[in-house]
């Protein structure tokens, strides 16, 4: 954005194609508008961007490092590459590392066939995990009357944390621990069922990209989600203010 808050129009190149963008847009937004495919997991339309999953990495001319498209703002004359062998390699490796961190057994998962991680893995051609699995032992938290949290499938995208804080305003969720020890917690690490702040709205369940959060009573492959409600909800709220 320009210093005086005025929105400007920039021209940039994506994969060699000239496109124009508003100065308040992210590279990801512009790419999507122009139908360049960039895989994402932690990004969700309607929530803030945190650049956690690193799947949306792109190359920007003049930058030594790869940059996450979801948190990088556009600039004038920027040259972005969304697809090449190096990016494909990094994206695959990122997905493989996500799989190796927890226990993903798609065939018996509530989210089978409705899972963003699974969908992206198929799309990016993952057929082997080349790093050893860690097989961590995580208990399932089924103490909530309506929902289940299964850390075994959590990819730490923090969509649940953000939606609960930014949209619902309840801030039930947080991330505890660092690095490989990190995990999502409810109400400062109390069982979800005992969280007084939880309004039981189910937004977290609906934005979770995988089978980590699900409605109780759903069987295998029945965890369909409605995450499209978010942009609509935020737009309606802005109108009211």
């Amino acid at each position: 954005m320009a210093a005086n808050g005025q929105i400007k129009i920039f021209t940039l190149k994506i994969d060699g194609k000239d496109v124009s963008a508003r100065s308040d847009q992210t590279v990801l937004q512009v790419c999507r508008e122009n139908e360049f495919f960039i895989p994402t997991l932690c990004h969700l339309e309607g929530l803030s961007n945190i650049g956690a999953c690193r799947l949306c990495m792109v190359e920007v001319a003049g930058q030594r490092k790869l940059l996450p498209a979801c948190t990088t703002m556009v600039s004038e004359a920027m040259e972005v590459t969304t697809t090449n062998d190096k990016l494909a390699h990094y994206r695959k490796m990122t997905l493989e590392l996500i799989f190796s961190e927890r226990n993903h057994t798609c065939s018996v998962c509530v989210s089978n066939n409705h899972c963003e991680l699974q969908f992206l893995s198929q799309k990016l051609g993952i057929n082997h995990i080349r790093v050893p699995y860690r097989f961590p032992k995580f208990a399932v938290d089924a103490s909530h009357p309506y929902f289940i949290l299964d850390h075994n499938r959590c990819i730490l995208c923090t969509r649940c944390v953000r939606v609960c804080d930014e949209i619902e305003g309840a801030h039930v969720w947080d991330v505890s621990g660092r690095g490989i020890q990190a995990k999502v917690i409810t109400e400062l690490n109390q069982p979800w069922g005992s969280a007084d702040t939880c309004t039981q709205c189910g937004k977290c369940v609906n934005v979770c990209p995988v089978g980590a959060l699900s409605e109780k009573g759903r069987s295998v492959a029945e965890n369909t989600k409605r995450s499209g409600f978010l942009p609509y909800l935020t737009a309606r709220r802005k109108e009211k203010i």
Binding site: S107, V108, V110, V140, A142, I148, D150, K216, G217, R218, S219, V220, A221
Partner: peptide, 8 residues
């Protein structure tokens, strides 16, 4: 969760 049992 018991709901997973048939498929498991």
């Amino acid at each position: 969760p018991f709901t997973e049992m048939p498929s498991l």
